[in-house]
Every structure is written in C-alpha cells, then in structure tokens.
C-alpha cells in the first residue's frame, strides 16, 4: 500500500481530534463534578437521576407534612391535657361543694370559679392552630362552639379529620370533630359544656338541698367527660408513633436516594484526573511523534 504524507497528516489530525475530545469530556467532569451533564452522557442514568430527584422532592414534602402533623398532634395533646386538668378541677369542686356544711357564700364563690373553668373550656374548644379551628371538623374557618340565645353551647362545626399524607399508604386522620371530644350524647358521650352549666346551676341554687343533689348529679358525667378526653388523647398516641416511625424511615430513605443520585450523577474526580493525565501524556506524545514524522521528507535529503 502506498502511504502518502497526506495520509499521515490525516491520521494525526484524526487522532488528535479524538484525544482533545476525550480530554474535554474529562475536563468537563472535573469542572462540573458531574458524570452526567446531559442525557446522552448516560440516558438510563439521567432518567434515574431525574426520578431520584422527583422522589426526593416528594419525600421532602411528606417530611414537612409529617412535621406539621407532629406539631398538630403535640398541640392537641397539650390542649387535651389542659382540658383534662380543668375538668378534674371542676369535678373536685363539685365533690367538695356537694359535701354537707358548705355555706351559700362558699358555693357562690365556687360557682365563679367553675364559670371561669367553663369559659376556659369553651375557649380551648375553640382553639386555633395555624389560624384554623382545631375542633371544628371540616369547618376550620368558624369557631365550632358558641353559646346560643339560651346560653346553651351548640356545635356549628362539621364532621371531618385533619389529614396527614403519608407515602404509599392511607393518610393519618386526626379526628377534628369537636362533638367527639366535648359532646356526642347520641353515641353515649357526655356534653361537657352542659354538665359544667349544670354544676354552676347547682352551686348557685339558693335551695341548698336541691343544689347538693344537682351538684352530685354532675359528678359521674364529669368523670366520664374526663375519660372521654383521655381516650381522645390515647387515640393520638399510636398516630404519633406512626408519624415518628415514618419520619425516621423517610430520613433514611432520603439519604439512600441521595446516595443513589450521587452514584449516578457525581463524577469520580480522582479517576477523572487520572484519566485526564494519561490522556495528556497520549496527546503530547502524539504531538511529538507528529512533529518528528511529518517534518522530514526526501526533500530534506536532496542537496
């Protein structure tokens, strides 16, 4: 086969072009620290990275939702605990003031205390979290418990729950129906507000005998109201546990997904540098060889 200078020149330019291209690829990896800068660098890897990012953004949303859910549960817990204390206080007052030998004045004083307790209970039942009524069910925008014209506390809220979305499963539903906490006589519950009103009425009854009977009649319902609130508190415990467990799981999952994205996307910089070095050596020796081989020809020797 005849070999001409043009063939050698063409071969050298082809090799040099390929070598510079390979060096640019490695340089880009080092500069961006990324193995995948565009989909064609690794189409399957690029799709995995994208899917990982989507998953990650979803997980982060779930995590922030769980954070909100946790503070909602803690808030409920505190509120219910306070309510329980108040109910207990009212019951103790009822116990003390239903005993014999309590004067009308003492009872009147106790009535004021219980009235304050009743006001505080109503206030707590209308409590808001992040601007939404906690015990109004789906009616989160209006105070759920109001005193009507006759002084009776009625429920204006609705049924419904506070939903905390969880990945790949049913959401956690925190009961937000105030009736289940404070009323719901139909289902054997106790109307806390009515009982407190009864207690006040008993304490304020000028007929001490009758008053004692009225006060005594509230003792059992008040205890049941306390249990009712305690049961609701207990309901939250497994939910809180599930949130905690899910959150821990999410934290681990996020780390795993992030690591997976990194494995696909991140460049092994050390390896890239080593490859760049060896490419440089090859490139420089090609240049040296080209300058050695291409220059001389027979012309140089014809003198």
């Amino acid at each position: 086969m005849r070999i001409t200078h043009n063939m050698m020149a063409r071969m050298f330019t082809g090799v040099l072009r390929r070598q510079t291209l390979a060096m640019i690829v490695q340089q880009e990896r080092i500069a961006t620290q990324k193995r995948i800068s565009r989909p064609s660098d690794d189409p399957a890897g690029a799709a995995r990275v994208l899917s990982g990012r989507g998953l990650l953004s979803g997980l982060e949303k779930y995590a922030s939702g769980i954070q909100q859910g946790k503070s909602r549960l803690e808030f409920n817990e505190e509120t219910l605990k306070l309510l329980g204390d108040l109910v207990r206080q009212a019951r103790r007052t009822a116990e003390e003031k239903s005993a014999g030998g309590v004067s009308a004045a003492e009872r009147a004083l106790a009535a004021t205390t219980v009235r304050e307790i009743a006001d505080q209970v109503l206030q707590l039942a209308n409590t808001r979290f992040h601007g939404e009524y906690v015990f109004g069910g789906d009616r989160r925008d209006v105070a759920p418990f109001v005193r009507d014209g006759e002084g009776r506390v009625t429920y204006r809220g609705a049924g419904g729950a506070f939903l905390i979305p969880l990945p790949g499963g049913a959401p956690i539903a925190v009961d937000a129906d105030g009736r289940n906490y404070f009323q719901n006589e139909a289902a054997g519950g106790v109307d806390l507000f009515a009982e407190l009103d009864h207690l006040i009425a008993g304490l304020e009854n000028p007929d001490l005998e009758e008053g004692t009977a009225w006060i005594r009649a509230t003792l059992d319902p008040l205890e049941r109201a306390e249990v009712q609130l305690r049961n609701k508190r207990a309901e939250a415990a497994p939910q809180a546990y599930r949130l905690q467990a899910t959150e821990e799981h999410l934290t681990r999952l996020r780390a795993t997904v992030q690591a997976a994205i990194g494995r696909d996307e991140d460049a092994d910089v050390a390896q890239a540098i080593v490859e760049l070095k060896s490419l440089q050596v090859a490139y420089e020796s090609t240049l040296a060889a080209a300058s050695q081989i291409l220059r001389p020809s027979l012309v140089d020797f014809l003198r």
């Binding site: 800068s37 690029a46 990012r53 953004s57 979803g58 949303k61 939702g65 909100q68």
Partner: peptide
C-alpha cells in the same frame, strides 16, 4: 435539558407537591 431542574419532570414534582400542602 432537565438537569437544571427547569423541565416538565420538575414542574410535575412541584405541582403534586403543592397538592400535598393542600391536603394539610
């Protein structure tokens, strides 16, 4: 190019994420 996060995939993530907030 979606690698900068400005594509359809990222917008879908943002869309569903906003509905996740609405659930709460």
């Amino acid at each position: 190019d979606e690698s900068g996060g400005g594509g359809i995939a990222a917008a879908l993530g943002g869309f569903f994420g906003s509905w996740q907030d609405l659930v709460l």
